[in-house]
């Protein structure tokens, strides 16, 4: 079962059901650059990358999608948190080629046109960031957190947000933002 995360605007929801053939490919790709297609924020994007290119680098360096941040490149900070098939994961430990046939959502895909997602509004209102560098990852975790049902109280929020390090230490404000969206009826409704 794949929990759905975020708004209904994640198209396709190519759920990772068992037996679903994810990509059209057979045979080896690479090691040189190969053309692949990624569905990023609902748009099909073609790019030429080597298999060793991480999803994070593909987004940032090849597609100009720089919302996801590189903080440690080894899964120790959470700044690169994005959703793949609606689940929050780390872009730095994911290969771009492995995401063919899956839906990738970044912070750029959170807002509905000009209207901010309620969680984005709550982060603004609660000053849930300072330098803003960990913020895209915090937001992707925060919205997912509500969908997962891991926001019953502050202790649970804190634990399930601990994979996103904020060196400015805006943590109490991040919790306040999440509470606000939770108590306003959840992150789904504007």
């Amino acid at each position: 079962m794949t929990p759905r995360v975020g708004r209904a605007r994640i198209p396709g929801q190519a759920a990772r059901e068992e037996g679903t053939a994810a990509g059209p490919r057979t045979g080896d790709l690479g090691p040189g650059p190969a053309e692949i297609e990624l569905a990023v924020n609902g748009t099909a994007r073609r790019l030429r990358v080597e298999p060793r290119v991480s999803l994070l680098d593909a987004l940032r360096e090849h597609l100009g999608v720089t919302g996801p941040k590189k903080g440690c490149d080894q899964g120790a900070c959470g700044a690169c948190t994005v959703w793949v098939d609606g689940r929050r994961v780390l872009g730095c430990l994911t290969l771009a080629v492995a995401c063919e046939g899956r839906e990738v959502t970044t912070v750029e895909g959170l807002a509905d046109g000009d209207g901010l997602h309620p969680m984005q509004q709550a982060f603004l209102a609660n000053d849930a960031f300072q330098c803003g560098y960990c913020t895209p990852g915090q937001l992707m975790s925060a919205v997912a957190l509500l969908e997962e049902g891991h926001a019953s109280d502050d202790a649970e929020i804190a634990e399930w947000m601990s994979g996103n390090i904020c060196r400015c230490a805006a943590y109490p404000n991040i919790r306040a933002a999440i509470r606000q969206v939770r108590d306003g009826g959840g992150g789904d409704r504007p």
Binding site: T66, P68, A111, Q120, L124, F129, G132, T135
Partner: peptide
């Protein structure tokens, strides 16, 4: 609210490696 807040919550803010 921060003047750069909107850019920072939407991913639009540009850092030096971007």
């Amino acid at each position: 609210d921060r003047v750069d807040g909107h850019a920072k919550v939407t991913g639009a803010a540009r850092y030096s490696a971007e």
